[in-house]
Design a protein around this nucleic acid. Structure first.
Length: 279
DNA sequence: AAGAGGTGCAACCGCGCGAGT
DNA sequence: TACTCGCGCGGTTGCACCTCT
């Protein structure tokens, strides 16, 4: 038994939106706000699927959208964020005010990919193209201190061997529930992922944990990533005391610089108590 | 001027996840 | 616990527009 369709396809329009449809959608959202996309089309008098309305609003009609070409700074920021996050377009978009995930995704595929290739950089791995073709081995180990999740990835040697990813959660949080932390102990979790070619080099410079990473920078790549993270997520200040920083630091969104407020955080991290949550 | 091929982007599709029941 | 619903995400498609020959 499959999922029920999100809308009655026989009675919905598809394809390009007309000005009239746009205006109806804008008027409705101005009057009632966003949300409940499933019922919105009917309420707004549109013969469209709710998903289609949502997409049209988010990608095209929203008043805070920035139209026009991407700047050089935006280019570089997208490249850096992509090197850290991969194809997490929505998270990347959250860091670029006025840009949508769809816009960034399209821009990446049409411009930045080509730009990186012309620089001799593999757009997927962010490593030199010729290096990606070699049989080099790599071990990427990200460790953090006591209260953190330790993620170790071992791609050493062997084209055909399975790399192991070990996520050891020595601290107190349930990573699946995006909560703010309890005293509950969790057991180390070992994930064995399928065979991959050794030339696929993955650098997961994502730190999830409370303390800063300064004691654990061991390579030029990780230093660069760390510098980037610290440049966008500055140390505690008078305005942002250390205790609050600790709460914010646990969130990846914060670590990559989503410090401007709830709107820039991923939805899972928003919370009404003023603190930020794991995600 | 016209056709072919390339490019950019809006829109669609399928799937995963969390919330609710 | 199992199921449905609604939302949001990432990948893909289709088409309008542009450039070249």
């Amino acid at each position: 038994m499959g999922r029920s369709p999100c809308c009655e396809k026989a009675h919905t329009n598809k394809g390009a939106w007309t000005k009239e449809e746009d205006q109806r959608l804008i008027n409705y959202i101005r009057a009632h706000g966003e949300g409940c996309w499933r019922s919105l089309p009917k309420a707004a008098g549109l013969s469209r699927c709710g998903k289609s309305c949502r997409l049209r609003w988010i990608n095209y009609l929203r008043p805070d959208l920035k139209r026009g070409n991407f700047t050089e700074e935006e280019d570089e920021l997208i490249i850096k964020l992509h090197s850290l996050l991969g194809n997490k377009w929505s998270v990347i978009a959250g860091r670029l005010p006025g840009r949508t995930d769809n816009e960034i995704k399209n821009y990446w595929n049409t411009h930045i990919k080509r730009k990186l290739i012309s620089r001799g950089i593999d757009p997927q791995t962010h490593r030199p193209l010729n290096a990606a073709a070699t049989n080099s081995t790599s071990t990427v180990v990200t460790t953090t201190t006591a209260n953190n999740k330790n993620i170790s990835m071992d791609f050493q040697n062997n084209v055909d061997q399975k790399p192991n990813i070990i996520i050891a959660t020595s601290s107190s949080y349930d990573e699946t529930k995006c909560n703010s932390g309890t005293t509950e102990e969790t057991k180390p979790l070992e994930i064995v992922i399928p065979k991959i070619p050794s030339q696929v080099m993955i650098n997961l410079e994502l730190s999830i944990g409370l303390p800063l990473l300064t004691d654990h920078i061991s390579s030029p790549e990780s230093t660069a990533s760390y510098n980037f993270l610290t440049s966008v997520a500055p140390p505690p200040t008078a305005e942002v005391p250390a205790a609050e920083m600790v709460a914010k630091t646990v969130c990846l969104c914060w670590q990559i610089g989503f410090q401007g407020g709830g709107d820039q955080l991923c939805s899972k991290c928003r919370n009404t108590n003023g603190f930020y949550r794991y995600c």
